[in-house]
Nucleic acid binder design. Sequence first.
DNA 1: GTGAAAGCGCTAACAA
DNA 2: TTGTTAGCGCTTTCAC
Lengths: 399, 399
Amino acid sequence: MTALQIGGETLPGVIDASPGARRVAIGNGSIGGDMSRRHKATIRDVATAAGVAVGTVSRVLNGSGAVAPQTASRVRQAIAVLGFMPDAAGRSLRSGASRAIGVLVPTLSNPIFARSLEGIERAAAQRGFSTVIASSGYDPVRELDVVATLVARGVEGLVLTLTDTKPDRIDAVAGHGVPFVLAYNQPKPNGGAPRFSLATVDSRVALQEATEQLIALGHRRVAFLGGAFASSDRSRARYEGYRAAMDAAGLPAWDPAEIPFDAQDEAFEAALGDLIGRLVAPTALICSNDLLGLHAVAAARRHGLAVPGDLSVVGFDGMPMARIAEPSLATVAQPARRMGEAAVDLLFGLIAGGPPRQLILPHTFLEGGTLAAARADADPLRAGSATILGPTKPNRSPR
Amino acid sequence: MTALQIGGETLPGVIDASPGARRVAIGNGSIGGDMSRRHKATIRDVATAAGVAVGTVSRVLNGSGAVAPQTASRVRQAIAVLGFMPDAAGRSLRSGASRAIGVLVPTLSNPIFARSLEGIERAAAQRGFSTVIASSGYDPVRELDVVATLVARGVEGLVLTLTDTKPDRIDAVAGHGVPFVLAYNQPKPNGGAPRFSLATVDSRVALQEATEQLIALGHRRVAFLGGAFASSDRSRARYEGYRAAMDAAGLPAWDPAEIPFDAQDEAFEAALGDLIGRLVAPTALICSNDLLGLHAVAAARRHGLAVPGDLSVVGFDGMPMARIAEPSLATVAQPARRMGEAAVDLLFGLIAGGPPRQLILPHTFLEGGTLAAARADADPLRAGSATILGPTKPNRSPR
DNA sequence: GTGAAAGCGCTAACAA
DNA sequence: TTGTTAGCGCTTTCAC
């Protein structure tokens, strides 16, 4: 353990004694060096240097309007010499084009969103767009504030993963009049033409299939562990998929075990351990994401259960790390990075004036070491208490 | 596997038939609803509505200059009614204050940077600042371009994790005249007052300590696996720490095994497996990050080595996921989120005109299941070929 | 093909 | 305490 501070404390006040460095501008890195031409060239300077009008420079910059090749190269030279870069604020103010998009994710602690963001950032950069990022922390209230902030920043479009996609929330976003596409969200399908753009996998179907795999392996007592439905329509859709499969097989579906997203790592593990202990001996556990799945495996082991011997576990996401774990986590893989890229494609379609499109990306069920056939001799009742989790009766219309 | 498209394809052209929706503006979400007052109120509208001058509205908005309480509340009311939000471009253009910071990370696929970014974003948001994100992909060239782009965006400060901190690269960044702080970087210490701000852990010392732990466990043949030095001064600093510990113990340090950062998951694992196979039977492997550590454990196992029975493995970062793995990865934990927050604190110190400060955050060695005492009976030569990795002679001045 | 000039929305300086 | 006004840097008419 090491904790010390070097500099700052030892020689306070010693900032930048180099002559002529008396800039009014507040705090730069105060590296030595020559701060002389810190004038930050404007388009006017370029025009003067090239002996042309500012309008001409602008035309060269944007390829708008015709410019004589000779003039153009003179301008480009001046630009290079002065190291000129057009100021985004001025450009944005005048043209309304900020060349920036805004992204809202629930959290960056889940690698799936981080990876998706990476795809978004790269796809945007490729088009010369910057990416402004914000996170909601799974908080529905903060979420809408954050979107408003992004819009006020002047972003030309938004890629959002909302907590919820009820019509009023969609309307709140749409009300800003800024093109947007949802990523990962699982809105209820509506019949007609799509009212907004969306890039996602079909969580419901995916988890239904995963549950069927478990059932095919002979599991009858399958429990579901997910993030809080109030904060994640993904989690809810996945539960519905689970439920549909259980119903179809005539098996009792369990009430969902919901874990709040704000649970800290330790609290989280504790809560989870508690839960596992109180389960009425399921032989398989299906989790709404890999993070949960990994923690579930660990918790099960702490409770003396063998995975997959006593308990099979399935996750969702396909995080690379969960795949190299031992045993590897069986999961439903979704293409996170491609999801981000696809969302940006859809967004630019919208920005170009195209219609909303909804894209369902392919998911893949990945078998893994956490999967085994149900043991015939499994003890039906391992724990005494069934207060928290127990099978409920089959239900034909899950909601 | 599922891949289909709903909407868009099936009903092309059907966009938004609602009457009065013929907006010139290009593509919004085309949600139905009333797009009537899509005028996006300006400060002028607010002034008119409140019956005051624009200057007064501005004063209310920014708390600059005194405004009569009555007037102020009238203005605030108008703001609320019109749903006015000041346009960032106009504000930024006039005042030079964009209320945005820029962040450069090597990648978002490494959870350590994602988590740090989360800390940055939250700390910035708390101060009313937006966060513009960009990634370099560990590419030194792209890196500088990206910084320039960020600066052109008008960000008021930068938090950067550079590939390299040689003086010329620092100068290139400082030349923009925008306050910046480095995060995670490991510049060579220089005697005097710091020339730039920095938030990091001391990778060199940390890995030296970790190596000492291994040595204390009886390991004599300890190898080092890291990311390419050309792309990561962290990796290099960690190697130096490893080397220092080996030298101090009079043990032969090994040449570093460098893994390029752009290796894709599969290629990566293949290369790693290869490496492990060719190692001249080290009894311990120290890795420059947890991702590498986890992969190393998996690769070792694929080669029939027991971890930690045949090979002890240590990582770096303290990723939560590596800790819940089985066996849990021994590692040097660093406070990623706090690192991000600290960086932002330092940045705002700079923006406020304060001097550069360099902050070394505490690291912690975390024992784990991948750690065991060296077996006395370990076979010194397991593999025939030592072409890739073999011990080199001790060296008192690692470089 | 090029120049001149009018603002985009906002803040800050100056008057009143 | 409040109103008026001059731009910030840029794009985009509109003349020429």
